[in-house]
Simulated scan of single mutants.
Amino acid sequence: MSNKIHDLDTPCLLLDRDRLETNLERMKKVATSRSTLLRPHLKTSKSLEVASLALKASGGGATVSTLKEAEVLGRSGAVDLLYAVAISPQKLKRVAGLRAEGIDLKVVVDNVEMAEHLSAFYEQTGQTIPTLIELDLDGHRSGVRPEDSIQLLAIGRELDRYQQLRGVMAHAGESYALSDPADLQHSADNEAKSACAAAQTLCNSGLPCPIVSIGSTPTALMGTSYEGVTELRAGVFMFFDLVQSGVGVCRKDDIALSVLSTVISTNPDASRLVIDAGWMALSRDRGTASQAEDYGYGQVCLPDGIILTDVLVLDAQQEHGIIGVRRGSSACLPKLSIGDQLRILPNHACATAAQHGAYHVINKQAEVEAIWPRFSGW
C-alpha cells in the first residue's frame, strides 16, 4: 500500500513510522544505560501494531491504563502487563479472568481498604492477584507518600497475607510542569530515590518488594542509573507532542503524530484560515497554555511536515479549526487555496489520538504505507 496523503479524507491521523521507531530506539538505549527493564505504557497508542514495535524495544513487559487495553493486548500475546491505575473491587473478577487466560496482569493499590478487598477476593475464589503499592511523590493524584511508613507497611502486610505483594510503583507527574534541565534531573532523582526508599521500608520489615517501577517520559529520559530501580515506564515518548517539546525532552521534529486537515475557508481580512479539523479531531487539550510557548490547539505544518513557525490553530470549534499567526510575531500566513492540506502537531498525543479510529502510517516521502486500527473503551 502506498498512496499520497493528498488522497486521504480529512481530518485523519498521520503517524510517521521513521520517527516512531527512532523514538522507541532512543528509550530502549536509555533503559539499557540505566540497567533497567523498559515497560512501555501503551495507553497512548492503543494499537496492536504500535504495541508490537514497542514490545520489541522493551523485551516483553508493558503498562496499560484500562482493562480493555489489557484484554486486547494480552490476548494478542503481550502477557506481562501492569495495570497502572488504582484498582477497584468491581474490577477484580475481570482481572482474575484475564489472569486465568495466562495473562500476567498486575494491579496497583494505595490504601488498606482496597488491599483488604484483594484479601477477601482471595478468600472467596482462591485466586491471587499480584499487586504493587502506588506511591505519591508530589501530591498530584493517587498514591501513598513514600515516607508514610505506617500506611505503606499496613498495605504491604495486608497484601502479603496471601502473597499478593509484588512491589512499588511511582510516577513523577510533576515533571510535566517543568522545563529546566536541572529541575527535571532533580525530579528524576527524587522519583528513583523515593521509590527505592519505600521498597527498602518494606524489605526492612520482612516484606517482599521485587519490583521497583518508576517512570514518566521526562524523568525516564533525564534520569540516570539508580541502584534498586528494576523498570522504567513511559508512554508518550513513542509519539512525543508539543507539551513534551515544551518540557524540553524532544524537538518538534521528533513528534511522530499529526492531524491531516484541509482548508475549507479563507478570511484574508481577518488573516485567518479555516480547516476541517476542530476539537473533535485535535482534542480540547490545551497543555501548552501553561508553558513558556503556547501553541493554541496545535502547531501548523505543510503537508510534507515542514513547520510553519508561529502559525498556529488559534481556536477550535467542533469541526472548525481557526488558523492564524501568533500574536506579536512577524510571520505570515501561507498563501493557500480551498482544498489545500495542512498538518497539525498535537499538544497532547494521547488526547489527539483518542479522537481517531486509525493511524495512517507514512514514510519519509509522506506516502501512506499502512493503516493501523486503534481501539478504545475501558
Rank of each mutant, 00 (worst) to 15 (best):
G223W: 06
E319G: 12
E25G: 01
D16C: 09
L314M: 15
G77L: 08
K68D: 08
N267C: 09
N363C: 11
M27H: 02
V368G: 04
L345S: 00
A316M: 08
L48Y: 12
R251P: 08
L67I: 01
H117Y: 12
T128N: 08
A354W: 08
D80V: 05
S76Y: 14
L38H: 04
V72N: 11
R19H: 05
C209E: 05
D315T: 10
F375N: 06
S245H: 15
L42F: 07
G61T: 10
K364Y: 00
E25A: 11
Y226M: 07
K46L: 03
R251F: 13
I255M: 09
V112T: 13
D253C: 07
T352R: 04
D183Y: 00
V259Q: 02
C12P: 02
L48R: 10
V243F: 00
D136G: 13
V168W: 03
D80Q: 14
L42N: 01
D340T: 10
A62L: 03
S330N: 13
S283T: 14
K252G: 05
R145L: 14
E367A: 12
G173F: 01
V95S: 11
R286E: 10
G357P: 02
E134L: 09
G61Y: 13
L38K: 08
T224F: 09
S330P: 09
S205V: 10
F121V: 09
P40R: 00
Y295T: 01
D180C: 06
S265W: 00
A195T: 03
Q90Y: 12
Q365T: 08
G173P: 01
R17V: 14
R284H: 13
S58E: 06
E134R: 14
T266R: 12
V50N: 04
D253V: 07
V72Q: 10
K46P: 01
L232R: 01
Y226H: 15
T201E: 07
K56D: 12
P11C: 01
H360C: 09
G215D: 00
Q244W: 01
G223Y: 04
L159N: 05
H117R: 12
A182D: 15
H117E: 15
M280E: 12
M169A: 08
I344V: 15
L15A: 05
A195L: 07
T32A: 15
R233V: 09
Q341Y: 07
A331D: 01
Q164M: 14
L55T: 03
R26H: 11
L55R: 03
E231R: 03
I322L: 11
R251E: 15
T309R: 12
G246P: 08
Q151Y: 00
R157V: 03
L82S: 05
L184Y: 04
D294W: 08
G215C: 02
L308T: 04
Q355G: 01
G321F: 08
L302N: 01
K28E: 12
S47H: 03
N3R: 12
Q318L: 10
R141Y: 11
V95T: 11
S179F: 07
A331Q: 02
R99P: 01
K4C: 07
S330Q: 13
R161E: 13
L312F: 12
Q200S: 09
Q127F: 09
V79E: 09
L13N: 04
K335W: 00
P208I: 04
D285V: 02
S179Q: 06
A62P: 00
A281L: 11
D294A: 06
N204V: 02
R272W: 03
E227H: 12
C203M: 15
Q341R: 14
M27E: 03
G235Y: 02
A353H: 02
V236M: 05
A57P: 03
D9L: 13
V249Q: 04
